[in-house]
């Protein structure tokens, strides 16, 4: 399941809903991304997440489908927020549920690594020097490249 929304989410309630009634699930892994108050040397007052409505949902659905193709998963969840967020606020939740933990761990890493390099979101930071668009990180490309099949 995927959701793109402005409002916050309740992690406990989301994970509970994801697994409810699916008693074949043996483990759930999740990753929660938060807004940091510092980026390198810069203090971050807040950030605004922009996205491409329509394409965002398509890319996230494709990432979810790819995770299901690669691992035996009982459930996948991706929730990503947009709009203005302050330090400490949640940005993203990804979760994977499977009968066994290794598939759940691997799928969870895959989901966030691919999301970061493929889903059309952009971050605009509020800094003491004014607004600043966040640059893409080579380390994110490297993390995603681990999952590219030969």
């Amino acid at each position: 399941m995927i959701r793109v929304q402005r409002e916050d989410f309740d992690v406990g309630a989301e994970l509970e809903a994801l697994t409810r009634g699916k008693t074949g699930i043996g483990g759930v892994t999740s990753f929660i991304g938060l807004v940091r108050d510092i980026a390198g040397e810069r203090r971050i007052g807040a950030m605004t997440l922009e996205h491409y409505p329509g394409m965002t949902e398509r890319r996230l659905a494709e990432i979810e489908a790819e995770a299901h193709r690669r691992w035996p998963l009982d459930a996948v969840l991706i929730i990503h927020r947009y709009g203005r967020l302050e330090p400490g606020e949640r940005i993203v939740l990804v979760a994977a549920a499977s009968a066994h933990r290794q598939a759940a761990f691997d799928a969870c890493q895959f989901l966030i690594d691919w999301l970061k390099t493929q889903a059309p979101f952009w971050k605009l930071e509020e800094t003491p020097d004014g607004p600043r668009w966040v640059d893409a990180q080579a380390s994110d490309d490297a993390a995603a490249a681990r999952w590219i099949k030969d």
């Binding site: 390099t117 493929q118 059309p120």
Partner: peptide, 10 residues
């Protein structure tokens, strides 16, 4: 057709 910089979500 959409034009944009490398993405920075997550």
């Amino acid at each position: 057709v959409a034009l944009f910089p490398p993405v920075t979500g997550g």
